[in-house]
Each structure stands twice: as C-alpha cells, then as structure tokens.
Amino acid sequence: MHHLTLTPEDNATLSPVLAELAKSYDTIEDPELILRAPVFARQLPVHVLEFLEEFRIGEPSALCLISGLDVDEAELGATPEHWRDSQYGSPAFVQELFFLLCGSALGDVFGWSTQQDGRIMHDVLPIKGHEHYELGSNSLQHLSWHTEDAFHPCRGDYVALMCLKNPDAVETVVCDAADLDWSQVDVEALFEAEFTQMPDNSHQPENTAESTGDAVVDRLRARSFALIQSWNERPVKRPVLSGDRENPYMALDPYHMQTEGWSERSLRAFEGLCAQIESEMRGVSLRPGDVVFIDNFRAVHGRKSFRARYDGSDRWLKRLNITRNLRGSRAWRPAPHDRIIY
C-alpha cells in the first residue's frame, strides 16, 4: 500500500487553507468549487502533491492511503439517516474540502445522473430498509467485490473513500491485481470481448429521486435510465482484461454478470480469475481521517457485513469518482465543463 501519514504540522498548514475555502462556499456540490478545485489543490503541502503524483504516474500500488487528517467526531454529530440529508450545512465540510482537493490532484472528479441525484461527492452509510440490498448502503449483507461501475465505458480511474466514522472497524476488502499469479490465469481468453457486464443496482431509477424539477436534466436522466435498461435487456459483450498482458487492468463485477451463453473457455477463464482474486482479498479498516484512493483499473473492492445501529453512531464515509480522461465521456455530458455523466 502507498501510504502517507499527515503530521500535526501538516494539519496546522491545512487548517487555514480549508477554513478560508469553507467561507467561500456552502456545499461541496457548488459547480464553481468543483471547477476550481484543481487550482485550489496546489495549496496542499508539496509532499502531499508529490505523494499523489507518484501514485498516479508510477502505479506503485493499487491502494493509496492518506491518514491523520483531523476529524472531531463530536463536531460531526449524528450519522445521517440517508444520503439526501447531507448536502447543505455539512458538519464535515472541511474534511470534504480536503478530500476534494486530493482527488482533484489525481484527476477530474465526476458524478452520475443516475446515482445519488447526480451529486459529485456521495455518502456511504447504512440506510434502514437496505440491509440486504446489493448497494453500498446495505449492512447485514456483504457488499460483493467489484470494479466500480464496471459495466460503463466511462468508469472512473479511481474510486476514493474518506472515513468520518467507523466505530465497528468494518473492513473494506480489496484485491490488488499485482498480487495475482497471472501465469495461472487464461489471460488471452479474458482479453476477448466475450463477457457481459450488467448495470449495477445503484444506477437503477428506484434509488434516485423521480424528478429534479429541471426539465432538461430530467430529460437527460431519463435517457440515461433508458440506456441502462437497454443494457440490461441486451447486454454488451466486453473484455474483462485490458492493457498490458503481463500486468493487465481489470473490469469485472461478478454479482452483476450473466454467464449464460459464454463459451466453456470464457467461463473457465473467468472462474479462474475470480478464484485468484478471492484468494488474495485483503481487509482494510479505515479510521476517521483516512482517505483511500483505489485504482479502479488495478483493484476490485467490496465491504464486509456489519450490524447497523441507526442511532447516529454508524459508519459514515464519503466517496468520489475520479477520471484521468474527462474528454472520454464528452458524448455523455451536456457541456465540456459539466462533471455529470448522463
């Protein structure tokens, strides 16, 4: 793991920078803040920027952890009951700003019109009634390991998590592709476009608001849901592996993949890769103030089950999607500066 611990001096340096930004904006979703975040990121300590750049370019690990950010859990108050309750007046705004700046040093943050009402920064917390759903808001069911948004051609390069609360030390599970024995996997078969990746449940219309009140946005989002429905009805075949055959990138989400119609070789290769991943899965228990960036091309991740209390003390994370190629999604976004994929 690529790891940096912030010192008390780092927190002292960051505090006035973040406080000044917090005076200028009232929500992390402010379009101007998102647009200017790469410039504001230059105010991060130089060694933090160098650390993130080494992760981005050198790929020393599929996990990059920055720990030690100051978090006062008393100031946070209760964990929200739902992600819709957390956008404005966030008690974690200062921490959200640090998270945004670090993410913007790695690439461009973006959101999905079909996830959490099109927000850039998501909340990951248990929601009553979701205990057994295959969603990040579940609790009693394991969140199956996966590539984030594996089904979509515009999936992010990184999925990032910032921990605000984790009283039960619930583990995020991760497998780094570098830990796999590729000589035991049928790599050539997995490079073929023979595998169906289905849209995951978090992009389904029942998990977002029916209307935003903006006719243009609602029309674009309806188009996105219609496209997702078409992918469910007529799955697109894609490869599981890409890039360098000696050290490949991965894109798979077994829970949302249909194996019907696959050739025997494809199925055997896929099962062999899944077995390798299962054998190398590792647990990471995030602590308050931890920020982890997971390389979404070189790792899969999930989460172990836990019993939510729903008393305001539950696990609470923030999540960002980050791309190194914003132009790659231009056909899916209304304008060059828009960060929401429709």
Results as ranks from 00 to 15, higher is better:
residue 27 T to D: 09
residue 164 L to A: 02
residue 25 Y to K: 06
residue 28 I to Y: 06
residue 88 Y to W: 11
residue 283 G to C: 12
residue 314 D to I: 04
residue 341 I to Y: 14
residue 87 Q to G: 06
residue 307 R to G: 00
residue 130 H to V: 01
residue 319 R to P: 00
residue 170 V to I: 09
residue 192 E to F: 07
residue 44 L to S: 01
residue 269 A to C: 05
residue 90 S to M: 03
residue 3 H to D: 05
residue 342 Y to G: 15
residue 108 D to N: 10
residue 79 T to L: 00
residue 147 T to S: 15
residue 84 R to I: 09
residue 69 L to C: 11
residue 168 D to N: 11
residue 331 A to L: 09
residue 139 S to M: 07
residue 231 W to E: 12
residue 305 S to M: 05
residue 308 A to N: 00
residue 273 L to N: 04
residue 307 R to C: 03
residue 88 Y to C: 13
residue 288 P to F: 07
residue 52 L to A: 08
residue 2 H to V: 04
residue 7 T to C: 10
residue 278 E to D: 15
residue 102 C to R: 08
residue 73 E to P: 06
residue 29 E to H: 07
residue 235 P to Y: 06
residue 110 F to P: 04
residue 295 D to W: 00
residue 180 L to N: 09
residue 292 V to P: 07
residue 214 D to I: 08
residue 274 C to Y: 00
residue 215 A to K: 10
residue 320 L to S: 04
residue 158 Y to G: 07
residue 157 D to Y: 04
residue 5 T to V: 13
residue 186 D to V: 11
residue 32 E to M: 02
residue 163 C to N: 01
residue 47 H to Y: 02
residue 334 P to R: 02
residue 324 R to A: 13
residue 302 G to Y: 00
residue 107 G to R: 02
residue 11 N to E: 06
residue 56 R to H: 07
residue 321 N to Y: 11
residue 236 V to G: 09
residue 183 S to F: 09
residue 127 I to Q: 04
residue 95 Q to C: 14
residue 166 N to R: 01
residue 24 S to P: 04
residue 175 C to N: 06
residue 239 P to G: 11
residue 339 R to F: 03
residue 306 F to K: 01
residue 97 L to Q: 08
residue 245 R to W: 05
residue 167 P to N: 02
residue 6 L to P: 12
residue 332 W to I: 05
residue 166 N to I: 00
residue 18 L to I: 15
residue 162 M to P: 07
residue 120 I to M: 15
residue 326 L to I: 14
residue 144 S to I: 06
residue 190 L to D: 08
residue 246 E to D: 15
residue 166 N to F: 00
residue 54 E to P: 03
residue 141 Q to H: 11
residue 293 F to M: 07
residue 277 I to W: 02
residue 116 Q to M: 03
residue 128 K to H: 02
residue 149 D to K: 04
residue 52 L to R: 15
residue 94 V to M: 09
residue 1 M to Y: 05
residue 311 D to H: 02
residue 18 L to K: 13
residue 231 W to M: 13
residue 151 F to T: 12
residue 112 W to N: 08
residue 88 Y to L: 13
residue 157 D to K: 07
residue 173 V to F: 03
residue 230 S to P: 05
residue 68 G to T: 04
